[in-house]
Structures are given as C-alpha cells and as structure tokens.
Write a protein that binds this DNA or RNA. Structure first.
Length: 973
RNA sequence: GCGGAUGUGGCGUAAUUGGCAGCCGCGCCAGACUUAGGAUCUGGUGCCGAAAGGCGUGGGGGUUCGAGUCCCUUCAUCCGCACCA
C-alpha cells in the first residue's frame, strides 16, 4: 500500500510542495510576540547552466536552520532572490543577440524550478532581483546617499555633505584636509582654503572641492584596463595580472571613474571584525586585504644637481632604524625621478625606466626575486646626522603604496639587504650581534647601536622616540597606511545599474529622488565602445539629455546590488523607502549568513561598508550586517577518463593500466621483474604488441555514463563520441569487477562534462533523500568531491524511519501505548544530540544520530506515538516532505512547521550504573559495572580484587590506581 | 615568502574537548529469502597473528596515570595573499 517506494515518494513530495504553496505556509510577517531569526543564503547569480549539486549544499543547511528555528518558536525570515546583473548575461547577449533581460529572466525561472523541487521554505513573496527597476531604484538611491555624504574623521563617521558645506562656509577646510593629499585647488594651486576663499569660488570649483570629500566620488584613477574585455576591472577581478574571466592581459590606464571611499572605513572595517562571528581564515583574509600598517612619514632633504626638488617623503614602519638607512629607493614612476637625476646618471636612468616600462604586469609579478635598480645621482640627507644617502630607483618599490619611496635599511630588511648586496652598497649595522653580515634581521628586540641618541635603547621603544623628535622638527609624523584602495565603482558595461547622475559642464549632479529609478534603456548593441566608454554611450539620445546635460555611460558593478539586498528582503515591496524602519528594526542583523568563501573580500566588505554608511546616516541601528558567517565547502566533481590505445583500438580498465605501469616501472628499474611483481600483466599486453603504458591516451568519459567509478553505460559513452570508438575492443579487466576508470577531482563545470544536477538525484531518490545525503557527506564547511556512491544509505534510512510507522504490508500503524523507559531514552538521547548538533551547524552528525535512533527503534519494534511524534518533528527540518506526510497520518491538520520541537528531558537519560572500562597501564583490559554514586574507594577495592586485574598484577600491589567517576579506572603497575 | 586550514580503516567520516579510537554510512565478505534485482533481511569487517597477544589517528620527540585531542619539531596536501617598506 504505502511503502516508501520511489512512486510513493514522488506522490508525497509533489502533494506537499503544492499544498505548501497553496496554504502559503512560508509567508513571513512581523510578529512582535516572537523573537526573530534571520537566516540568509548568498543569493545566486542565475547562470545559464542552472543549479548543480554544489549550490544546494549551503541552501539545505540554511533551510534546516530556518525550519529548526521555526519549530523552536522563532519568527524566521528566510528569503531568496537573484543577483541578476552581471557579465555572463551580457556576454551571452553579445554572442547570441539575446537581451540580457530576457535570458536572465529565463535563467531565473529555471533556477526557481530547480530550487522548488528541493523543498526549501523560502518566502518567495519577498524575492528580490537586482536587475528589476523596483529594486535598483533603491540601489541608485543608496548610491546617492553615499555621494551626498563625506567622512568626518574627527567623529569617525559619515555625515551629510551639507554639514561639510556649512563648515567650509564658516572656517574653510583648515581642520579637514583633503583625503587625497596630492589634490590642489584649481586656480590657487593650494591644498587649503579659508571661509572667504570658499565664498569666492565659483560653482564648478566648489563642486570639485566637495568631490574630494564625497564617499562616492569621480576621479581620474589608475584602473585595470582589459583590452580584450573592453572594460575596467576591480582589483579583485584581476588575478596575477590577467582577468579572472578569460585570463586576458590587464594594463594600467587612467580613466575618470566612480569610486567608493572605502579607505576611510578601513579602521572600522578592521575593528568591526572583532564583534562578528566569522571564521578565523575569513577574518584573516579581510585583515590582509585591508592591510593596515602603522609607522611614520619622514621628510628627507634632497641634494641634486638641478636642486628643483627640495625634499622627499618616505613611509616606514620602522622609524627606529633611521640610523641604519644606507640608501633611498623610489618607485620608477615617482614624479621626482626626472628632476633629481644627475647628468652623469641620465643615460642609465633612462635605460632603466625604459626597461621597467617594457615589463608587463605579469613579468613583474613572476620575477619578484629579480633585483634591478639604478642610481639617480642624487642624495637625501639624514635629518639627524646629516649623512648623505644615495637615492636609487627600483621596481621593488611600488608607486601606489605609501609615498612611493622608502628608506633602505639593509641590516633589518630582507629586500633592502639583497638590494645592497646586489649593488655593493655599504651596510650599516645598528643591531650589533643580531646582524650576522649575511642575512637581514627584522627583529624588534635588539639594543640599538650606531644610532646617536637612540644608542642603548631597545628597538621597540626607539620608534616612539624618533617620531617625537620628527614632530618637534616638523619633518615627520606617525602615519597609518592601508593596502586597500578605494573601490572602483564604474564598469563599462550595459547590464548593470546606471549611475543616477547628470553631468552639467562636466560636473556630476545627483538626480532627484522623484526621478528614480533611472531605468536602463533598451539596447540592441551590447558591445563596449572599446574606447573606455560603455555600451550605453552608443545610445546617443539616452546619453545626451539635451545640449548641456549628459548621463554617465558607465554602470555599477554587480557588488552594488549585492551590497544591500539583505535589507530589501525585510520590506521588499516598499515604494517609499529601501525598507521602513519598523521592518529594519524588527529583523535587524542577519543572524546567520551561509555562502561560499570566494566572496571573502569583495562582497562581504562592500556589504559591510554600505551598512556602516547607512548606519552613520541614521537609517540603520546596527553597523554590521552579518552576525555570523558560515562558509560551506565547495563541492567539486570527479572527472573520469578511459585509457585507450588508439592504434590497436583497445580500451583498458584503470586497474589493469595501473598494474601495467607498476610492472613496467619495476622492469625498467630492475632489468627483470622482482619476485612479487605480477609479470603476467606485461605478457598480457605483449600479446597486443603493447610495450609501454605511455602508448595509451586518456579519453574523457562524461559523468552521466559512470556508475560507481566504473563505466556504467558503454553504449552511451560510444554514442557520445559519435561512433568514433565503436570498433574498439574493451579488454576484460583481470579482476572482473567492472571497468574501472581513471578519475581525478576538478571544479564542477559544464565544459568539463562533470556537472551533476540536483534534478537527476531528486528524480530518482526524492528531495528528502537528496537533502539528507548532502548533509551526511561530511562537515558543512569542508570541501568534498561529489559522489553518489552512498546515497542508498540515506534512502534506506528514510525508508526505515517510514517503516516505524507502518506494518509490513504498508498499513499505517501507530499505537498510543505507553512507551518503555528504554524507548524514551532513545527518544531523548536523540533530541538532545540533534538539537545541539543543529545549533553547532554539525548536520552530518545529526543525520548520523537519526540513523542510530531509527536503527534502535527498529530493533525495539517501537511504533508508539509518544516516541515517534516528537521524532517526526525533530526530523522535519531535514526531510520536510516525508515528515509532513507522517504528521498528517498522525492525525494533524496543521502543517508540521507550526509544531513545536520537544525539548529533551535529562531525567530519561540518567543512568544509575556505569560500565567502567578497566585499564591497566593505559590499556583497556576489562569492563566492570558499578553504580554511578559508588565512592572511588569502593570501586578501587572491587577492581583490585577482580580476577582479571589480579591476573595482570600477579599479586603485586599497584603503584597507583586512578578512578574517574563515570569515566574510567586506570591501574598503574 | 607570509597567513589560514587539513592529515584517522579500502572510501566519506565520528570521537561529550585529555578518559574504551573507528560511531553512522558506503564498499567488501558470509548467510537467508526470492518473482535472480544494481532488491530485501541477518551477521561480520582497522592491521598483523592460529591463538594469547601485539601494533595502530602523516613522521619524530615531549608532558601526563592516560594523548587523535596539549607542547616542540618535521613532512605532505589544499586555500588565500604575495616586493605593502
């Protein structure tokens, strides 16, 4: 009748999925009476390939948490949406001429269809799609808030730009220097102005000055220009000098770009990490990316022929080593290089600059160990002892970090030391025996020598002393530097949010809120202009509003939509605000955020930044978006290959192939095979006149033809290659255990023929088995290759659980009989373990516990309601369909989602006796049962008197007896 | 080079945080049943050994009555950053 068969599963799962939709069981509303819980998945980019089995891993985990929290009495927000703007849809459009809006919509429908089959408890009424005008209206609106604000360093928070204007009107910028210290006011050429200066500036100059302070600003900046993609890439989209997509070369180029002044938030992004629960590695990646270093900025006087340049500034983290400076190095791109180069060095410097220019980014990165450089002929003067120090240029100093100039301290810095040795520069030792003459020592513990007023001081203390002296002399100060750059926010792309600004006289003005959204115009030409402007520049009537007004041809990066989507879920249909405060205050921070670690820097930093800005501007009462982050491991895939001898037209199994290699290697090494080598395999292949394993080629076998690591569908495989191999013979494997294939782990990808879609698994086993199996694979955060071997175990478990409620003929049979103490113990043990495991995101062990429980109840033949009902509830987060069906069969009319998770009762778990392992010298030799409250002394006596212990002690008194109550007894001889 | 993580049966993994190493599942072995299925059920299964017993958590050393767990050292693999002064 009602066996847990594949047909029955399909019926049950379809039935409940439909009913959940009809009854809107996942609809979420604010409920002040309940504590809230916000469970968030990183929303997917809807790619054309659809979901593969890796995607749902995190979604299943978060779904379990959401359902669990719900039956624990929380009001749970668990939404889903789509990160729908992005490059692939646009590239697809360029190749196939299909509007990204259409292909994206199709992909989203496909994703939703696939997600719908797995039984997730998303409230789809709250779905967001970042490419929808209703949504990106608010992305643009938030962008404008950022544009209309500046960072008040004194208060360490963002404020409205109007406040800054007020300050300028009353005192100029005396107390608020330009964030970009190189900026000079047009006309005056100065970097500061007074209140009356401000009033005298015209509109354009005022706007330009304000632009220097805005948190979203437009500026010429070195950007990563990728010729092949015809666009600018963010730093995190460039890997080893090539684009992360396609691997095309990337060069530096100056462009007028929008940027977010994230560097102002560097410190808060850093300290904020202390109050959120991210993994150590994730925090470390962010810290690394922010790259804070504390040190000093020091001015050195410069002596050069032309004497145009009076001084240079270096950044150092080690001002304490000031007397160990033997040379200066500036970046080849440094602006003063031309001015300070002496006539004698002119040719050499020119030659060197040409060489540096000729080197691509990739070469520079690949050859970081290569030491190059050139003397400029100029000198810097050590401000404390007037020593003249030669100024060099070298590519190991980066123009973009610090001041683009360093002081070389060869005894303390490894790179400086190598440089000095390479160019035969003298090395001053200021750390005595800590420097051995062959290797730099970056210690902080040395007592300084040869260091004038620092002599005798420990290095750790020296820095402060030096900074104080520098400040007295007015030639230096404490300085903090960050590796992190401001975030480039413009993309020369079509498929993204247009910037809600209007240019008048080349100056951007914010659009008014009532005119938002600035919708993305329809286009048939998605190709970038290639000159640096995006495809929107092709739409002349859109770009040029009128003679004096122009729009921005760039769009925002995908990060924009993703930087705040978790806020929109709280109030997704609001047309008056990005979300109202009632919703924002109720749902607050995301309690747990589950997603991949690949978003460690970009997405998570931008989301944190936007929340901090919105917090500063008074829209949010929290300033970190995610309380806890969990990174699910990647699911990789096995790719399979078959060994083929294309000339002899033979296929051979991996097993035989490996034996052949082994025998072959032994033959080469020993002239003749060793005694235990299997020589028959060589003879076997000799029959086909095959002498060497290298004659075989590996041919890809798409994973759909593979069953349990073996070739499962021979004909399918042959058809896949269109009959090319139909004449090939399959050598019968020696073990006769099936045709094993060569396999290794790769990323799951359409092009690698190794993608496994959840659809096929759900089709065969049902969603519940799929969910259980993915969780049972191992710890959530661990990466693992996908393999279906073993999924039967999960299926069998569910069937066994189902069978507890049914008699052998499949009739529902649950009794109201009193459960035995033993049965109750099984129940409460399971409830206890499962609850704590879910709280710790240890889903594999909770599945394991359910298996143990159902095994035990099966052998107890337990079919009692009092035991089974709480278990159905407990299992419902993992297997929602089956448990909902059982719940109904148990006579309930409401959904199991509204049931209550039964807390375990410790009293059922209490034992009064314990089976002590008795170990002798740490080795367990026996078991003895004693009452748990039996005093140690009594246990000791009984143990020592026991036959087994007497056998080992041989009558001698033991040295020591350790009795740990409720744990173990150890007798030391 | 720096930083983070991980090493346990044939495989995926577990071990109440210092207390019986190998739970649960796959696979494998044996048996039962049978409508012969890639089904189901029962039992077994770390390695060596006939057994007694011995050996076992990447290797070496240490602390401890007791170490997969703590400390030192070393090796391997994966991930992130990488001339950041």
């Amino acid at each position: 009748m009602a066996e847990y068969s594949k047909e029955e599963i399909r019926k049950i799962e379809d039935k409940w999925r439909q009913r959940w939709i009809d009854k809107k069981v996942y609809k979420t509303e604010i409920d002040a009476a309940k504590p809230k819980y916000y469970v968030l998945d990183m929303f997917p980019y809807p790619s054309g390939a659809g979901l593969h089995v890796g995607h749902p891993l995190g979604y299943i985990a978060s779904d379990i948490v959401a359902r669990f929290k719900r039956i624990k009495g929380f009001n749970v927000l668990h939404p889903m949406g789509f990160d729908a703007f992005g490059l692939p849809a646009e590239q697809y459009a360029i190749e196939h001429g299909i509007d990204p809006a259409i292909s994206t919509e199709q992909n989203i429908q496909n994703f939703k269809r696939q997600l719908g089959k797995i039984g997730f408890c998303y409230d789809w009424d709250r779905e967001v799609q970042t490419c929808k005008p209703e949504y990106y209206k608010w992305t643009q609106w938030i962008f404008l808030q950022i544009f209309e604000s500046w960072y008040n360093r004194k208060k360490q928070k963002a404020e409205r730009i109007e406040l800054l204007i007020k300050i300028f009107e009353s005192e100029g910028n005396i107390s608020y220097e330009f964030p970009n210290t190189k900026f000079r006011i047009q006309g005056s050429g100065k970097d500061s102005f007074t209140a009356s200066d401000w009033k005298s500036f015209d509109e354009k100059v005022k706007r330009e000055i304000l632009m220097q302070y805005r948190l979203a600003y437009l500026a010429y900046a070195d950007v990563n220009w990728c010729e092949a993609l015809g666009t600018v890439l963010a730093n995190d989209e460039v890997i080893n000098g090539v684009s992360y997509r396609g691997g095309f070369p990337v060069v530096k180029r100056q462009m007028r770009q929008w940027s977010l002044r994230i560097t102002e938030y560097a410190d808060r992004l850093l300290t904020g990490l202390d109050e959120i629960d991210f993994s150590d590695s994730m925090k470390e990646i962010q810290r690394n990316w922010i790259g804070k270093s504390v040190g000093a900025k020091i001015d050195f006087q410069v002596k050069s022929e032309k004497a145009v340049v009076k001084s240079m500034t270096v950044f150092t983290t080690r001002p304490d080593t000031i007397f160990g400076v033997d040379f200066m190095v500036v970046a080849p791109e440094h602006e003063m290089v031309k001015e300070i180069t002496s006539t004698a060095q002119h040719t050499d410097v020119d030659k060197y600059l040409k060489y540096v220019e000729s080197r691509s980014e990739i070469e520079r990165m690949a050859e970081v160990k290569k030491i190059t450089g050139c003397f400029t002929g100029a000198y810097a003067v050590n401000p404390f002892n007037q020593r003249e120090i030669p100024i060099w240029i070298s590519e190991y100093v980066l123009a973009g970090y610090g001041t683009g100039a360093i002081m070389g301290v060869p005894c303390g810095d490894e790179r400086d030391h190598k440089f000095a040795k390479h160019f035969n520069l003298p090395i001053t030792n200021i750390i005595g025996k800590f420097y051995d003459g062959t290797e730099a020592n970056p210690t902080y513990d040395a007592i300084l020598e040869n260091s004038d007023f620092l002599n005798g001081l420990i290095m750790k203390e020296g820095g402060k002393v030096v900074i104080k002296k520098l400040e007295e002399k007015g030639i230096g100060t404490r300085q903090v530097n960050y590796k992190m750059r401001d975030a480039g926010w413009s993309r020369q792309r079509y498929w993204g949010e247009p910037f809600p600004v209007v240019f008048r006289d080349d100056t951007p003005y914010a659009m008014e809120e009532k005119d938002l959204p600035l919708t993305l115009p329809h286009s048939d030409n998605f190709k970038p202009s290639g000159s640096g402007e995006g495809p929107l520049a092709n739409l002349k009537e859109w770009i040029n509003i009128n003679k004096n007004e122009r729009r921005d041809s760039n769009t925002m990066p995908t990060h924009a939509g993703a930087a705040w989507y978790f806020l929109r879920y709280m109030d997704p249909h609001n047309t008056k605000a990005f979300a109202d405060s009632k919703n924002l205050d109720y749902w607050g921070q995301v309690d747990v955020y589950i997603g991949g670690s690949e978003h460690a820097v970009a997405h998570l930093l931008y989301a944190r930044l936007w929340v901090k800005i919105l917090h500063d501007l008074g829209y949010l009462n929290f300033d970190e978006p995610f309380k806890k982050l969990i990174n699910q491991g990647k699911i990789t895939a096995f790719s399979y290959f078959i060994h083929c001898h294309t000339e002899k037209r033979l296929f051979v199994s991996d097993e035989d192939y490996l034996d052949f290699i082994e025998a072959h290697m032994q033959k080469i090494e020993n002239e003749e095979p060793s005694v235990n080598a299997d020589t028959s395999i060589i003879e076997y292949f000799l029959r086909y006149e095959i002498n060497d394993p290298v004659e075989f080629k590996s041919i890809k076998v798409p994973s759909e033809f593979v069953v349990n690591e073996k070739l499962g569908n021979k004909q399918g495989f042959l058809n896949f290659y269109g009959g090319t191999y139909n004449d090939c013979e399959f050598l019968v494997p020696k073990s006769e255990r099936g045709f094993t294939l060569e396999s290794f782990v790769e990323k799951m990808s359409k092009s690698k023929y190794n993608v496994v879609s959840p659809d096929e698994i759900v089709e065969v086993y049902g969603a519940d088995t799929f969910r259980i199996y993915e969780m049972f694979l191992g710890p959530l955060e661990q990466s693992k290759p996908w393999s279906t071997s073993g999924i039967d175990g999960s299926f069998k478990f569910l069937r066994r659980f189902w069978n507890l409620f049914h008699d052998p003929t499949g009739n529902f049979k649950v009794t109201d009989a009193e459960p035995s103490r033993e049965e109750l113990k099984v129940l409460h043990k399971t409830l206890k373990k499962v609850e704590s495991d879910i709280e710790h995101y240890s889903f594999n062990t909770s599945v394991s516990e359910f298996m143990i429980c159902s095994n035990e109840l099966t052998s107890l033949k337990c079919n009692k309601r009092a035991v089974l009902e709480p278990l159905v509830i407990a299992l419902s987060p993992f297997a929602p369909h089956m448990t909902e069906e059982l719940w109904e069969k148990l006579g309930h009319t409401d959904t199991i989602l509204n049931a209550k998770f039964q807390p375990f009762d410790e009293s059922y778990l209490k034992e009064n006796a314990f089976n002590y392992p008795i170990s002798i010298n740490g080795k367990v030799r026996a078991q003895m049962n004693f009452a748990l409250d039996m005093p140690k002394e009594d246990i000791e006596k009984l143990v020592l008197a026991s036959e087994i212990v007497l056998k080992w002690t041989e009558g001698k008194a033991p040295k020591k007896v350790i009795v740990v109550q409720g744990r173990i007894v150890n007798v030391v001889l």
